[in-house]
Amino acid sequence: MLEINCPWCGPRDQIEFSCGGEAHIVRPLEPENLSDDDWADYLFYRKNPEGRHHEQWCHTAGCRKWFNAIRNTVTYQFETVYRIGEDLPEKTSR
């Protein structure tokens, strides 16, 4: 079980969290002006990297806050966590 550092509550067991998948997917402001392909890209297509992955997590059984994390999909190590709206830590910029 992973230990995840909620940016609001501190380190807690993974069982308290749920993973929301890839982070930094921005909802298009004017969906009606998008082509089917562009909409599908937003809706369906996700990165599946081997290594660093920007993810959204929610402290579901805790403060219920969503936050961002950079997690290595090979080692499962969390590089960092940061709150929604916070800038990416500089060294890890996308």
């Binding site: 929301g20 921005v26 909802r27 959204q56 929610c58 579901t60 219920r64 806050k65 969503w66 929604i84």
Partner: peptide, 13 residues
């Protein structure tokens, strides 16, 4: 509830 919370927190804060 969880789904609406997610929109509010992550997309429309």
């Amino acid at each position: 509830l969880a789904w609406m919370e997610r929109w509010l927190q992550t997309e429309w804060p």
